Simulated assay, not measured.
Amino acid sequence: MTDAVLRLTERHIDDEGTAKYLWTLHDGRRVETVFFSHHAGPGQCLSTQTGCAIGCTFCATALQRPARNLSADEIYAQAVRVDEDCRERGLTVPWRFVTLSGMGEPLLNYDNMVEAARRLYEWTDIEVVSLTTSGVVPRIYQLADEPTYLQLHVSLHATSDEVRRQLIPTTRKWGIEEILTAARHFARTRDRRVIVNYLMFESVNDRIEDARRLVDMLEPELFEVHLLLWNEIPGFPFRRIDDHRVDEFRRLLSDAGLMAKPMPSKGRDIQAGCGQLLAERTA
């Protein structure tokens, strides 16, 4: 079944074993999937749409306008095909994590995304299926009541609506406080912290004032913060921040009681890092 749903077009593997897969779908559209491994175990990053309409100014996927949502079969098949490829390469992988954080905004493909997550939990002994959203507020409330549990990551990236609109122009409908209010509801309903992704940019959102505002916004019992470094994309007007600056920012958060940790970048050399996925340039 999965061979008919996805055709492997390209595969790239870096020196650390991170692999990026380019799939061609039945209608000729293309998406990408990433296999990665870190200290907590192996995982996969799956796509939920062919492109993305959110329009983040730092993300290559924004250059691929979405033609459609992926079906539940197409989302689920990515995981199965990556598993098959790993086994063919002699990698016996007890899957720990699957994240719906590749191409697309998963909460704009809600029903297919949730159905794929349900099937992933049934497929193997996955510890957790997670998703990353730019903040589709009504769907966050809906997700809190789903029988199938998904770990919620919210891409915040700013401590003011003004700066956030510069980074994520299409999120004008919901401000930071509305998004965080929905995230608080999710955390209390599921009794598990929401992860706030904070992608750091030099001279944009890396000031001491930003760290202090983040501390004021986030309750330690409801949130933890993942600090991300921007992965370079040719032609984009940002600079990758130094590791030591990220660690200084982390210490400011941690000293105030907020759980925070920098997240390693995987697959940068093969354009498989966060924000680098682009299966076809259509804009």
Results as ranks from 00 to 15, higher is better:
F249Q: 01
S37C: 07
F238L: 03
D206F: 08
R68T: 03
Y121Q: 08
R118H: 10
I54W: 03
S160H: 07
D3I: 02
K20M: 10
S160R: 14
P106F: 07
D15E: 12
Q64G: 06
I176M: 05
T24P: 00
Y121L: 10
E162Y: 04
R188Y: 02
T124E: 07
S265G: 06
R207H: 14
W174C: 02
A40P: 01
V196R: 05
K173A: 13
D216T: 15
H157C: 05
P237T: 07
F223N: 03
I195Y: 10
R7T: 15
I13P: 02
I54E: 04
R239W: 02
D111C: 02
L278I: 08
V136N: 04
T99M: 02
D27T: 03
M259S: 13
D145L: 13
L63A: 11
M103P: 04
A4F: 09
G43E: 06
A260Y: 10
K266Q: 14
S71A: 11
L120H: 02
R245C: 00
E16L: 11
E177R: 06
N197H: 15
T170E: 08
R7D: 08
I241G: 00
N205W: 09
V128N: 04
E232T: 07
E84A: 12
L22Q: 06
R213N: 06
T33Q: 03
V114R: 12
E221V: 04
Q49N: 04
A53G: 15
G257N: 13
D161N: 15
G55D: 09
Y121G: 09
L8S: 04
Q142R: 13
G104H: 05
P169V: 07
R89I: 01
A79G: 10
D111L: 05
L131V: 05
W23E: 07
W23K: 11
P220L: 08
L277W: 03
D255I: 01
V196M: 11
L277Y: 03
K266L: 14
K20L: 10
F201K: 00
V98P: 00
R193H: 04
W123Q: 09
L107R: 05
L228K: 00
I179M: 15
V114L: 15
Y110D: 09
N69S: 13
P147I: 09
I126T: 15
L277C: 05
A272Y: 08
V246Y: 00
A272D: 12
P42S: 04
R164W: 12
W123Y: 03
R7M: 08
E224H: 10
L131M: 12
L108Y: 02
L25T: 15
S160V: 06
Y76L: 06
F35L: 04
R119K: 13
A4V: 10
A256W: 09
V136L: 10
C45P: 01
L6N: 01
I13S: 10
K20H: 05
